[in-house]
Design a protein around this nucleic acid. Sequence first.
DNA 1: GTGGTCTAGACCACA
DNA 2: GTGGTCTAGACCACA
Lengths: 123, 123, 123, 123
Amino acid sequence: MAWELDDNLPLWPQIKEHIAKKIVRGEYSLGEDFPTVRALAHEAGVNRNTMQRALMELENMGLVLTNRTIGRIVTSDEALIEETKKSLAKKYVDDFLKEIGNLGYSREEIIDIIKGDLQDENR
Amino acid sequence: MAWELDDNLPLWPQIKEHIAKKIVRGEYSLGEDFPTVRALAHEAGVNRNTMQRALMELENMGLVLTNRTIGRIVTSDEALIEETKKSLAKKYVDDFLKEIGNLGYSREEIIDIIKGDLQDENR
Amino acid sequence: MAWELDDNLPLWPQIKEHIAKKIVRGEYSLGEDFPTVRALAHEAGVNRNTMQRALMELENMGLVLTNRTIGRIVTSDEALIEETKKSLAKKYVDDFLKEIGNLGYSREEIIDIIKGDLQDENR
Amino acid sequence: MAWELDDNLPLWPQIKEHIAKKIVRGEYSLGEDFPTVRALAHEAGVNRNTMQRALMELENMGLVLTNRTIGRIVTSDEALIEETKKSLAKKYVDDFLKEIGNLGYSREEIIDIIKGDLQDENR
DNA sequence: GTGGTCTAGACCACA
DNA sequence: GTGGTCTAGACCACA
């Protein structure tokens, strides 16, 4: 999953969400070490301050912990991760249904569009 | 459909999309009068310049035509409107599937989530 | 010669020039009757006030005269017409050479471009 | 080449064309730094917003690329620049021939006028 | 009254 | 410092 940041929108919320998704997908070993800000900033192609800001938000969400001696680690609170996953999913679904509903599609049409799309492409 | 503009994001793209959806849903009679810039700006609670920027984009898309000193009208090109509707729908679906896929859900789970959501709520 | 007015520029100077060219080309019999403002406005697709404004300028240039009893007539001063023709031509040439020169073309290239263009098309 | 903006006409299209010509003439090193909006606005004696409008159009044409927080650069796409040069030249020639033709000059006369003019002045 | 242009100036994210 | 967005408000041509 590339970073694909939209330069026209604030970067740090995009980064925050990007990393949250990575954690939720289990790309980082829970309770273990996390890349450095420097590495992450470089990977995302943003300034370290921007990455810092995103990580701060992730700490506030409890997904990432800073430990003086160990450094930054991913939370090992699996319940929190699961909850985050569900709430992100809900947000995506809600936003999507709202937007596509605004176009005037009925429920059945929406399901059909999705099914069609899922068959077309490999994601 | 209220304007529901997110103050933290650029306003004109939100307005542009909002109006595009209204046109696509058929809320304006094709080929007929369109609210004035001043009226729309007031309705959306933004400055006239901001509304004008959004309308400029809609004009570039061909959805709206400007007749200096008379006012604007919605295009009567139904094919263009249908096309716009499809491309918006595609964008929403693609973005949604990408985002929700990033969380690690399988195709079946996605369909189930949507179905569940559609039953829960009346939209 | 259609009117081809550019809606993004002030109309009356365009109209003024358009009519001046018609006079210079000899489309109106010198010293004789001239279409009414109403007719001209309709032909050009503009408001009568706008046409009025353009005609006022043509009167100032001396190309058109208003006579209480006869109405508006084209001047019969052929020297003035010839002079207008030359000055318009000079303006067009000067503007053109300036603009095309700004692109970085040499004199020879300019001549070649024109010759090529003149052979291509029938004007 | 001074800016020579005509205060009676919309400024931003004039600015757009002015800068396009500069790029086409090779006054900016391709792929390299471009003056800042603020600097250009100051140089042209217009407001920053007006300059920004012109630059937006140049970006749409692909002549200029924007790198948020870094600044702008001129495209390094030489084919695009050459194409732009040709299309500008064509527009100038077409407009000129149309206008001068409207005065009633024959092809030969037009060529003669140009040649005479080119000999008179050093441009 | 309609749309278009322009200015001055504030505020923001990012590097 | 860089570009982007937004507002308030003035002024203009045209109908």
